[in-house]
Design a protein around this nucleic acid. Structure first.
Length: 824
RNA sequence: GCCGAAGUGGUGAAAUAGGUAGACGCAGUGGACUCAAAAUCCACCGAGUGCAAGCUCAUGCCGGUUCGAGUCCGGCCUUCGGCACCA
């Protein structure tokens, strides 16, 4: 007989589907558990990353099923966007065709892997019954003042022919296609995510997120406390507002630094009397690449504007310079320069021979301005600072800020690094922005009754230099919904991250055609109890989804504060130390291994190789190892005598031979170990190791026919826990073994196993004996022995006695049940 | 520079509250079965030293606390990830 995994896996997949065991029940009285793995792009068949991701999610799902929860594990496809569009171009087809084709292939593969998915809830973001509600949410955002349109310099990828959000640019390269990103001035739609900056910093409402992800988002949002100070412009009503984290250096300001984009500069440039070199400098800097400009090693350049402003604390005349090192979109877009105490300002002042003024002195020694080769940026004591001289810098920050506030010349303030989310994409395969541009009425939202704005299908996709939608005249030209005059549709589509920002909520009520989802149903399921996905989305999807969720809460669509209560960031599957990729040619096709060893083998391998957050190095031998384990189990149960099948006994007899007593201990210990692991750390690799260990012990007991009745009960129990504990990792084989044992119900219906602490008490305990911390022997002592008895037993060990000869014992420490430590 | 994570055999990794370092697996070695191979089963498997009992060394490096440190504390080194002319 042979372990025919193909047949076994098909058989159980069919049985599960027929019985509908994975269908989750909305608004059930049972406690719910919502497990979600980040949905895939349908741009080809499943890869190993998916196999790993869903194996983890499925282990959790099945365990929760065993615990009796009403479990929801849905699946969907992130089917709009570049990967899907590019796949179609490559195959000389239309994305609507290739996408649905790929979905079909992926669906079959998920089924072949035996993932416990509620297929009735399947969705795809490119289907109009889904994107309809994305458009509806866009309108809600718009109506709540969270959408605006502005012209700005944006990240442009020539390869993808579209704009990228800041989060989607890595190292000045496109996060998706890795080609160089350049700056382009375009009119864009933005979501005001910055309105939620403060709340996004607060992770107190999540239950368990990796510190790493929280730190990354916190970094990205970049909150900074400081003071806003008004510098009145000389001979003008205007003020220059600056943001500074160092109000203590305010008396040391010797110039003001503005970027050429600053509105004040723009206005100066309109003056016909403006010097030509000033205008040409500004032009030059603006045309420079934004990213090159904001890199720290770019040489600082500037030009004196001819204008002065006044320092509010001492009335000093301050030169206003236009420079290339100040960023328009951070803080107020203006910097008060303190050369003596800021390295950048120091370099700039040296280069252009601008005055410096020392206002912070070292606490213990005197600084001499003329001798300084770099700025003094540390804390110190204020000097040359009027009434604030003599104060330590930390204290003076508060004092100077309140002084400014009293005089209405400044205020305590907070700035964030986070920018609003640019969601316009100039690509065809995305969710159309539901807006019509009318010459008379301006921007008009498409009325709810006309939603969804259907994406036209008669579009030739391919390499284009403009958005393909622009060429679909009968789609673009449409009457204004307000006045009926001829108008044009918005042709930008939404970033696909918009689609993925609320899909977890749609799963709760995926067929709803009146609303994105029913509020009560969503509130029954949300938040997602366990989310699983890659770390690469820390500052993208995971932040956008939190933003959307908080918005949906504010408009009363959901009642929870966070979308994902627990987050597990799974590692990648590597081959030869690198992430698998087609370009590197180091991919492994999961299908090939499913065909050769079965789905259970792949699942056990990826879960056993390392803990879920860590990368897994693919190993063909490792897969064979996993297969060996499953095969051994199958053979074992094939040969298991009938008397060890069926009913799970509880046994409390004490007259057992030692090997069987150990087996009973192992049975209860394994149950306990795995249960606690699920609750505390989810390290499936050690769970599977514990299962192997238990099975190895069981396997080593050969003479089962001569056991007495109680011993046989113990043996039977040791056997029957295996399919139950194996179920989350290798569900097909677990069901098969359970059936071999004579059961007609599914494994999960048995419920959760419980251990009896009584059997975790050993009557003999091994004590390790140390002398001065070095191990000198071991001794078996009865578990209820007194400390003194343990000491006596320890001293009698030959090796210990020998080492103690002629030595004075200073102290003996007995750690109950563990060791004896003798100090000499 | 700031923030975060990690460094353990040939190898993937264990060690849950400071208590036997290397569980479990892979690879390897020897053996059984076989004409042979595969599969399977049994045994060994950190380094050094010893006939052996044993002893010594060993968790990136250097110190410290402790009867006892992979684990705690101080100081470094390396690698990976995030942020960065952010005022």
């Amino acid at each position: 007989m042979e372990y025919n995994f193909t047949e076994i896996e098909k058989k159980w997949q069919k049985k599960w589907a027929e019985a509908g065991v994975f269908n989750a029940e909305n608004n059930s009285k049972k406690p719910k558990y919502y497990v979600l793995s980040m949905f895939p792009y349908p741009s080809g068949p499943l890869h190993m990353g998916h196999a790993s991701n869903y194996s983890i999610g499925d282990a959790i799902t099945r365990y929760k099923m065993q615990q009796g929860y009403n479990v929801l594990q849905p699946i969907g496809y992130d089917s709009f966007g570049m990967p899907a569009e590019n796949f179609a171009i490559l195959n000389n087809s239309h994305p609507s065709i290739t996408t649905e084709n790929n979905i079909k292939i992926m669906r079959e593969q998920f089924q072949m892997l035996g993932i416990a998915i509620d297929w009735s809830r399947e969705l795809a973001t490119s289907r109009s019954n889904y994107y309809h509600w994305g458009q509806w949410l866009f309108k809600k955002l718009y109506e709540n003042g969270l959408v605006y349109r502005k012209s700005s310099w944006v990240n442009w990828c020539d390869e993808c022919q579209t704009v990228l959000a800041n989060e989607q640019v890595e190292d000045n390269k496109c996060w998706r296609c890795d080609s160089e990103v350049r700056q382009k001035d375009l009119v864009q739609w933005f979501f005001r995510i910055t309105k939620y900056a403060e709340e996004l910093l607060d992770f107190s409402k999540v239950i368990d997120w990796p510190e790493r992800v929280k730190a990354m988002q916190t970094n990205w949002i970049g909150k900074s406390h400081g003071t806003e100070v008004d510098f009145p412009l000389e001979n003008s009503e205007k003020v220059i507002k600056v943001f500074t984290t160092r109000p203590d250096t305010l008396f040391g300001v010797t110039f003001m630094a503005l970027p050429p984009e600053h509105p004040l500069v723009t206005q100066w440039l309109t003056d016909p009397a403006v010097k030509p070199d000033l205008a040409s400098f500004c032009q030059k800097v603006i045309n420079e690449d934004k990213i090159a400009r904001s890199s720290a090693d770019t040489t600082k350049e500037g030009i004196f504007s001819g204008h002065y402003c006044l320092n509010p604390v001492n009335g000093d005349r301050v030169q206003v310079w236009i420079t290339n090192y100040v960023l328009m979109d951070y803080g107020t877009g203006a910097v008060m320069a303190v050369p003596a105490h800021d390295q950048r300002d120091f370099e700039f002042a040296k280069k252009y021979q601008i005055d410096m003024k020392l206002v912070i002195n070292k606490p213990d020694s005197d600084l001499v301005l003329a001798e300084m080769t770099q700025a003094y940026t540390e804390e110190g004591v204020l000097v040359n600072s009027g009434e604030f001289s003599g104060l330590p810098s930390e204290q003076s920050k508060e004092k100077i800020t309140s002084w400014l506030a009293e005089k209405s010349m400044g205020n305590k303030t907070v700035t964030y690094r986070l920018r609003d989310w640019g969601i316009s994409r100039q690509r065809y395969w995305g969710n159309p922005i539901p807006v019509v541009h009318c010459e008379k009425c301006g921007i008009v939202l498409v009325p709810d009754a006309d939603l969804p704005v259907q994406l036209p299908m008669n579009v030739q996709v391919g390499k284009t230099t403009q958005n393909p939608l622009l060429s679909v005249d009968d789609w673009v030209n449409t009457p204004c919904p307000k006045c009926g005059a001829p108008a044009r549709r918005e042709t930008d589509t939404m970033d696909t991250f918009v689609d993925s920002s609320w899909y977890f909520a749609r799963y709760t009520d995926p067929q709803n055609d009146k609303a994105p989802f029913d509020i009560n149903t969503a509130n029954y399921w949300l938040p997602v109890d366990q989310y699983i996905g890659g770390i690469e989305h820390a500052c993208m999807h995971l932040m956008y989804a939190r933003f959307f969720h908080k918005f949906m809460r504010d408009i009363k669509l959901v009642s929870s504060d966070e979308p994902f209560a627990r987050l597990l960031t799974q590692g990648m599957v590597l081959k030869d130390g690198y992430k698998m990729s087609k370009s590197k040619g180091n991919t492994v096709d999961p299908q090939e291994f499913i065909d050769r060893y079965g789905a259970d083998t792949i699942r056990v391998f990826v879960l056993f190789a390392s803990p879920p957050e860590k990368d897994v190095e693919w190993s063909d031998d490792g897969v064979k190892g996993a297969f060996r384990f499953l095969n051994r189990l199958w053979v074992f149960f094939q040969n298991l005598p009938t008397e060890f099948k069926k009913q799970l006994p509880t046994n409390s007899a004490d007259t057992l031979q030692p090997a069987i007593k150990d087996l009973r201990y192992s049975t209860h210990y394994t149950i306990k170990f795995i249960k606690e692991d699920y609750e505390q750390r989810m390290q499936f690799n050690t769970n599977i190791a514990a299962l192997m260990e238990h099975f190895n012990l069981l396997f080593s007991i050969k003479d089962t026919q001569n056991l007495n009745t109680s011993e046989k009960d113990v043996y039977r129990q040791a056997c029957l826990i295996l399919p139950i504990l194996l179920y989350p990792y290798a569900p097909h084989l677990a069901e098969e073994l359970w059936e071999i044992c004579g059961h007609t119900s599914f494994v999960h219906e048995f419920g959760e196993l419980d251990y009896d602490p009584k059997f975790l008490q050993k009557d003999e305990v091994t004590y390790v004996v140390q002398i001065n911390g070095k191990i000198r022997g071991k001794v078996e002592v009865s578990a209820d022995a007194t400390d003194d008895a343990v000491k006596q037993a320890a001293m009698q060990i030959d090796n210990v006695a020998k080492s103690l000869e002629g030595q004075t014992i200073k102290k003996i420490i007995v750690v109950k049940g563990k060791l004896v430590s003798i100090v000499i």
